[in-house]
């Protein structure tokens, strides 16, 4: 792929102050513009640390992290880096600053010192992308879980970033909330947004273009979701989603033609019944 690199991590090591062992031990990773990458790994593998490194919230103890060519070590570049990479965290309740939906979305642009009409434009656009326009005057804390997380997403989008970093952002949502959040990501991806999604839910990895496995602070595997579920997932003790397991079995037994989409309806139609 010869698209512009958004993130380049070169031999990144990171040890938390006071910790005895490093959280990242020589992480190498390149992510390009427009990619949707799922970063998967067990709890404690260093995924979340990586997200903070990519947003210059943490600075590598060894090695370098470049965001659109800017080294996160250079303090003068940090504001530019934060503006081009927006983070959405796990718990929406810990990200919401203001008690009115549109006031919260405005928080980022307000920090950038933008004029009011520009803030207004960004708030309107972000609310629409997140599907929250109708709720703009509602109280932030009276929203449902899925809506709150889309609010956090809107707050991130209002920075008009080049890339989105999602740290387990769908993990606290119920299935419907998760679907609404993921379909939101799908349409952002189609509009050219680079998405880095940290997750341990395999269902979310399937939607991506590329899966990277993080283990003990290193990137240990990198490839397509298809290849990932073709044998890699077991090595890192992940669970295969039941739908994919069925799809694999049907293909392996010659019950399904190659090229069938792995969703229930396409599979049922392709079966020779």
């Amino acid at each position: 792929m010869d698209r512009n690199p958004i993130f380049s991590l070169r031999g990144v090591e990171y040890t938390y102050p006071g910790a005895s062992s490093p959280a990242l031990r020589g992480l190498d990773l390149e992510i390009s513009e427009g990619e949707w990458v799922a970063l998967v790994g067990a709890n404690g593998s260093g995924k979340s640390t990586m997200a903070k490194i990519c947003n210059a919230l943490l600075i590598p103890t060894q090695g370098h992290c470049f965001v659109m060519g800017c080294d996160t070590r250079d303090e003068a570049l940090v504001p530019a880096i934060r503006r081009s990479v927006a983070l959405v965290f796990q718990n929406p309740d810990d990200q919401i600053v203001a008690s009115i939906v549109e006031e919260d979305v405005a928080f980022g642009p307000e920090n950038l010192g933008l004029p009011s009409p520009e803030i207004r434009r960004r708030v309107d656009r972000s609310l629409e992308l997140a599907g929250l326009t109708a709720l703009r005057r509602s109280g932030s804390f009276s929203l449902s879980g899925g809506q709150k997380q889309r609010l956090a997403l809107a707050g991130a989008l209002a920075l008009e970033p080049a890339a989105l970093l999602l740290d387990e952002s769908a993990s606290m949502l119920d299935p419907e909330g998760r679907l609404s959040f993921l379909s939101c990501l799908g349409s952002l991806k189609r509009s050219g947004m680079t998405i880095v999604q940290i997750t341990h839910r395999m269902e979310e990895a399937i939607q991506s273009d590329r899966v990277v496995v993080i283990d003990s602070g290193r990137a240990v595997w990198d490839g397509s979701p298809g290849d990932f579920f073709d044998g890699e997932y077991e090595k890192w003790s992940f669970e295969e989603p039941p739908g994919i397991a069925l799809y694999r079995e049907l293909l392996a037994r010659g019950l399904l033609p190659g090229g069938t989409l792995p969703d229930a309806d396409s599979m049922l139609d392709a079966l020779c019944l």
């Binding site: 947003n55 919230l57 504001p79 934060r82 503006r83 927006a86 983070l87 600053v97 549109e102 006031e103 405005a106 928080f107 980022g108 642009p109 307000e110 920090n111 950038l112 010192g113 933008l114 004029p115 009011s116 803030i119 207004r120 708030v123 707050g155 991130a156 920075l159």
Partner: peptide, 13 residues
């Protein structure tokens, strides 16, 4: 991460 820097001038929606 949403670009808040204490003491920096902010604008308003």
């Amino acid at each position: 991460s949403r670009c808040y820097v204490p003491g920096m001038p902010r604008t308003r929606l």
